[in-house]
Lab assay of single mutants.
Amino acid sequence: EPEARKIVEKLINNGLSPEDVKRWAEKNNNPEVKKAAEEYQKR
């Protein structure tokens, strides 16, 4: 999901860690963003 990846990169560029992004995604019920954050961590 390229859109989710863009969101993850934007949040990380704004100073969030991938863990923060995953928590944000869970709080906002956004499994695509959570998955993208996990993939981002593996890179």
Rank of each mutant, 00 (worst) to 15 (best):
R23M: 08
E38D: 10
K35W: 06
K10T: 12
I7Q: 05
P2A: 15
P2F: 15
L16F: 13
E38R: 02
N28L: 08
L16I: 07
N13M: 13
A36I: 14
K42Q: 12
L11V: 00
S17L: 05
K22D: 05
P31D: 11
D20N: 04
N28S: 10
N29R: 06
E1R: 12
L16W: 15
E26I: 03
N30H: 13
D20Y: 05
A25S: 02
P2E: 15
P18C: 11
E32Y: 06
I12Q: 01
N29T: 04
A37E: 03
P2H: 15
R5W: 12
K22E: 10
A37G: 02
L11G: 02
V33W: 04
K35I: 09
E32S: 11
N14A: 15
E39K: 04
Q41D: 10
V8G: 00
E38N: 05
R5K: 11
N13L: 13
V21S: 02
A25I: 02
G15A: 03
P18H: 06
V33Q: 01
N14D: 14
A37D: 01
W24D: 04
V21L: 07
E3K: 08
L16P: 00
Y40T: 04
S17I: 02
N14V: 10
A25P: 04
D20R: 02
A25Y: 02
E32H: 10
G15I: 05
I12S: 01
N13R: 14
E32P: 06
I7W: 06
V33A: 05
V21C: 06
P18I: 15
A37Y: 05
E26C: 05
P31G: 06
K35A: 12
E39M: 04
K22R: 09
L16H: 06
N28C: 15
N30R: 15
E9S: 07
E19C: 08
E19R: 05
P18G: 03
D20A: 08
E26V: 04
E32K: 08
L11W: 07
L16E: 03
L11T: 01
E9P: 00
L16M: 15
K22H: 07
K35V: 08
P31H: 10
R23A: 10
K22T: 08
N29M: 08
